[in-house]
């Protein structure tokens, strides 16, 4: 019997599901290896039974979400968190930068009391996560690599070096030389420097490397006359949940 796999989403834009749905021909080959029993974006069937692999997108932001992810975890042999929202909290983490009550009132106004909410958490701050596919959105080849490892029953470790490494292998002109701030030097690689290859900056969507040189990075910013405020802002766009717990 082929391994049963289901895709779930929590607080997110579902863009990572779209990346999977957009795998095209590769998706057909992936489907030969697994039996997809639930995937809201591409099919209407639901599955309440045991799972070999749960693929989870989105952050945990409500009490109901906590219960739901715990149930999914309980019936899944393997859990893959995919997309920044799930792996590091992602943009949802920005919520944690202000008091909860204030945020609720800003978003829901006078109906705030009907929308109970809790601080944003990446999935691994609630349940055990076996595999991570970082990124906003995920880099499809990495998703396939992680899925392959899960199917092979072997661990898969995302790289722990800077995006600069891949960017340099792609021989891009360094964005710092173009006078633009880029989070590449402190951000975990594994995306094949997708954004910088296309002229964009790195927003740090894959989270920080495990051992960033914070002091050194500040000195570099000062040298390039980049205001710290600007960088911290950029940094907290994806990485605001970081203080709460370690991400691998």
């Amino acid at each position: 019997m082929k391994p049963r796999i289901a895709f779930f989403d929590f607080a997110c834009c579902e863009g990572c599901q779209l990346q999977v749905a957009n795998l095209g021909e590769a998706l057909l080959d992936v489907l030969k290896l697994v039996d997809v029993v639930e995937f809201r974006e591409v099919m209407s069937e639901k599955w309440a039974g045991p799972l070999d692999i749960a693929v989870v997108e989105g952050s945990i932001t409500t009490k109901e979400a906590v219960e739901r992810i715990e149930k999914i975890r309980a019936r899944s042999r393997i859990l893959i968190a995919y997309g920044s929202c799930a792996t590091i909290g992602g943009v949802n983490g920005m919520k944690n930068r202000s008091p909860l009550e204030e945020i609720r009132r800003t978003v829901y106004g006078e109906h705030a009391h009907t929308f109970p909410t809790i601080a944003t958490r990446p999935v691994d701050q609630v349940v055990k996560v076996d595999y991570y596919v970082h990124g906003c959105p995920i880099w499809p080849p990495e998703f396939i690599e992680v899925l392959q490892a899960a199917l092979q029953g072997v661990p898969c470790f995302p790289p722990d070096h800077a995006v600069c490494v891949e960017c340099k292998l792609n021989e891009n002109v360094c964005l710092y030389d173009k006078g633009v701030t880029c989070l590449g030097p402190v951000t975990r690689a594994g995306c094949n420097s997708w954004c910088t290859n296309n002229g964009n900056i790195c927003y740090g969507c894959r989270g920080l490397v495990s051992n960033p040189n914070t002091k050194g990075a500040m000195d570099v910013l000062a040298r390039y006359r980049i205001p710290l405020e600007l960088v911290l802002n950029k940094m907290s766009m994806y990485n605001a949940c970081r203080e709460q717990g370690k991400t691998p």
Partner: peptide
Amino acid sequence: DRCLSCGN
């Protein structure tokens, strides 16, 4: 202390 380990 200055190095960012970017590997460049």
